[in-house]
């Protein structure tokens, strides 16, 4: 937006100068330039705006919260108020180069169907999610006997949109079930940086706070 224009009415408008999230920067590295991208559960559009500005992406979004959709519009993004669980069925096959599900799969009612639609609509799918196998979660449950509440999982069990938590290992299992090929996978540490060490799955499943997967149809 140029300087002479009045400020947008929406309070959640883009805040220039706010550093992009680390996991968003990683996603921006995963996509090819000028790709057609659908961000499912795009929130206030921060990731879509980043992908547009850094990679020249032609981005679209689906977002369930009305205020977030308005914030996306104020960023000049094309976003539909809708529900990942019901609205993905409306998109034609191969409509996008990438379909992204960033920190949202745990909030869907039917994660398997959402993932299947993503692989149908997009040539590739990118999924990032909080890892329920992280050691801190294990400590909370094993030693404290409590469901975890922390920065990555800020909700109490009785008041959370997150109804389908999984571990990195669990997600690999779902990929096998739906026939998705894992092209690249990352475990992100508490700072959102990829764990660069060459470790086996079980170690990632303990050290990673988040999992990020680039998938294609096998």
């Amino acid at each position: 937006m140029t300087a002479h224009q009045p400020p947008p009415l929406v309070s959640a408008a883009p805040a220039p100068g706010v550093a992009p999230r680390k996991d968003h920067l990683l996603l921006a590295e995963l996509v090819t330039p000028s790709a057609r991208i659908l961000d499912v559960g795009c929130g206030d559009g921060a990731l879509l705006a980043l992908l547009r500005d850094r990679t020249g992406a032609d981005g679209r979004g689906i977002e369930i919260e009305r205020d977030n959709v308005a914030a996306c519009l104020a960023r000049g993004l094309s976003v539909i108020q809708g529900d990942a669980d019901t609205d993905l069925a409306d998109y034609p096959d191969d409509a996008f180069d990438y379909v992204i599900l960033s920190q949202t799969i745990q909030a869907t009612r039917r994660p398997r169907e959402v993932l299947e639609h993503m692989l149908r609509i997009g040539k590739r799918a990118i999924v990032s999610f909080p890892n329920f196998g992280h050691w801190r979660v294990r400590v909370d449950i094993a030693l404290r006997g409590r469901m975890p509440v922390n920065e990555t999982m800020p909700y109490t069990w009785f008041d959370t949109p997150n109804i389908h938590f999984c571990t990195i290992r669990d997600f690999v299992g779902l990929c096998e079930i739906v026939g998705a090929r894992v092209e690249r996978a990352y475990a992100l540490d508490g700072r959102g940086e990829p764990v660069r060490l060459p470790l086996p799955w079980w170690a990632w499943n303990i050290l990673g706070e988040q999992g990020v997967f680039l998938l294609s149809r096998s």
């Binding site: 009415l9 959709v69 108020q81």
Partner: peptide, 27 residues
């Protein structure tokens, strides 16, 4: 893009004072 604006004013809402509509349209 698509937004369903929350309003109890029925079809005429588009003619009336609906801040969410203005904000979304302006965006």
């Amino acid at each position: 893009s698509f937004v369903e604006v929350e309003s109890d004013k029925g079809h005429d809402a588009f003619l009336l004072d609906e801040p969410d509509m203005f904000a979304a349209a302006k965006g």
